[in-house]
Simulated scan of single mutants.
Amino acid sequence: MSKLTRDDLFSLEKYAEVRPEFRARVMAHKKNRQLPVGPNATLYFEDFLTMRYQIQEMLRAERIFESEGIQEELDAYNPLIPDGSNWKATFMLEYPDEADRKEQLKKLIGVERHIWVQIADFARISPIADEDLERETEEKTSSVHFLRFELTPEMAEATKNGAAISIGIDHPAYTYAVEPVPQNVRDSLAADLN
């Protein structure tokens, strides 16, 4: 997948015009790119379109229109676009009650290292997590992690040929699996691969 450039972005004025239609298209697209794993964790698989939307929304919210600011947003979000041999995801731990969330995040230290993806009968893949910065302390983990799942060429080929994908978490305090991943998500992920 190619990376975003300034040419891929709308001006703030143009984005104001097209935002409702563009947002509706992105929301429909995202339905095929999110996967709840148990009741409190969700993987949001990123791609060119989801990152384009994220950048447009950041530019809009912050009223960024100068070249330097636009480039900073591109530099921040382009690393989340898959490279053709991997999947990149935002992993979120979602506990609506703030007190409960604080308690659970203490119990879930290291959860990002316990997430796995399996394609057909290949070995499970563990993610490379939080390449941008450390997201946990000795006391708690973050509710947001950024993950990269690297596939072997054989795994990618099997996925493109329709192999089932399973995804799970095997942390002692949170163990859930989705086996297999729903077809719409599986097909969307297969499209990320060269």
Rank of each mutant, 00 (worst) to 15 (best):
Y174G: 06
F10Q: 08
S188I: 03
L49Y: 13
L93I: 14
S85T: 05
K88N: 00
V37C: 08
P172H: 03
R135S: 07
M51P: 01
D97Y: 13
L133C: 14
I109D: 08
E98R: 10
V185Y: 05
A173E: 15
P96C: 09
R52L: 15
V111G: 13
T90S: 05
M1I: 10
G110S: 09
T42N: 04
F10N: 04
I115K: 03
D7Q: 14
T90K: 06
E138W: 15
E136F: 12
P82S: 02
Q71F: 02
L59Y: 05
V18T: 03
P82T: 01
A99Q: 13
S143T: 02
Q183M: 14
N40V: 11
E98I: 08
K88S: 05
P153M: 07
H171S: 11
I70N: 12
F65R: 06
P153R: 13
F122Q: 01
A173R: 14
V37P: 09
M51S: 02
L193G: 12
A28L: 07
I169H: 15
R186P: 01
E154V: 12
G168L: 13
P82D: 04
A99G: 05
K31T: 01
Q183G: 06
V26C: 11
L80G: 09
T42P: 03
Y44C: 10
F45W: 07
A173T: 11
Y176C: 11
L43D: 14
I115E: 01
A76C: 12
V37I: 15
Y77V: 02
S188L: 09
R101W: 09
T42Q: 04
N184C: 13
V37W: 06
E66T: 00
N32D: 08
S166N: 02
L4A: 08
S67P: 02
L151Y: 04
A177T: 15
D97R: 11
P153K: 11
A16N: 05
L59T: 06
F146S: 08
E68R: 10
E57W: 01
E17W: 04
R101M: 11
G162I: 05
T90P: 00
D83W: 08
K160T: 12
R186S: 09
I125R: 00
W87I: 02
P172G: 05
L74P: 01
E136G: 08
P153S: 06
A191F: 13
E21H: 07
N40M: 12
T175C: 10
E112F: 00
R60K: 09
I165H: 03
D170E: 10
P20A: 05
Q183I: 13
V111C: 12
R25V: 10
D7A: 09
